[in-house]
Design a protein around this nucleic acid. Structure first.
Lengths: 141, 141
DNA sequence: CGTTATTACATGCATACGCATATAATTTAT
DNA sequence: ATAAATTATATGCGTATGCATGTAATAACG
């Protein structure tokens, strides 16, 4: 096990994340959404079936209370709706409203273009490698 | 330009970052530091010459005011010291105190072990690939 | 079954953050 | 050289976050 290489590798990922996030932040396509809020809308769109709060949290780097309040704000703004889970009355089933779907699509299209531009330094084969490597890291420890 | 692949690739990186950050967060080695605060200590340690606030910001995903206050807190806790830049009296030259060096080393050693453990799903060659790919993304757009 | 533990989400409170703006020093322009 | 623009950092203020804890519902256990 090469401790040094493992750490350099992680640090590269960390810096790449920070660098790209900053660039995305600065391209002003987010309307009235924070990037975290958009991420939640995106996750709901991708799931295209109602999702529980705790399942949302898997992908998003937020505490449960922070996510709970983020959801509340998006509900207040009419972008997502809560429904009850008939089989477990503790749970929330979250889905996009029509307005939320619209907004996610609009912002998502713009964001996708920026992402493609920022990923452009990589060849297609390299993008595939990166994707595979990152997925391998997530799968388990 | 493959828009789809570029976005999938970015999303993998984003999720890997979130997943690993959460695992690091949860391993309880951080003493009284936030991970962001540790990152600043680490950056100063790596530089091993005084660094300006705005240069610190390159690697850390924080606004200038947030970083300014983070520095203030670390100064108050005796972990870093401000010195004046004799050639530019607007600037801050930041460096670790002895206590800051100690803490960075101690926490850093523990963190490095966790990192190595979490990166273990990758072969050494894959770590090198990941590092190279991420560096390529940072270098420019 | 009834008690206890666990799970899912919400809320109080202190703190950290981002945005706008202020302050102070340096550079540029006239 | 003086005024205007720019750069480096700090501060006011509203908002988002995390931690601890609360509430309600389901699961586990004796």
């Amino acid at each position: 096990m090469n401790l040094r290489l493992a750490n350099e590798s992680w640090e590269s990922l960390l810096r790449a994340h920070a660098s790209l996030m900053r660039r995305y932040q600065e391209d002003g396509i987010w309307e009235d959404l924070s990037m975290t809020e958009y991420d939640v809308l995106y996750t709901l769109a991708k799931a295209n079936s109602p999702v529980r709060l705790n399942d949302l949290r898997d992908g998003v780097l937020l505490s449960q209370p922070a996510l709970s309040r983020l959801i509340q704000r998006l509900v207040d703004r009419g972008l997502i709706a809560r429904a009850e889970d008939t089989t477990d009355r503790r749970a929330l089933m979250l889905k996009l409203t029509d307005s939320g779907i619209e907004k996610q699509k609009r912002v998502g299209r713009a964001h996708a273009k920026t992402v493609a531009k920022e990923m452009a330094p990589l060849e297609q084969a390299e993008m595939k490698q990166l994707k595979a490597l990152c997925q391998k890291l997530v799968s388990k420890s």
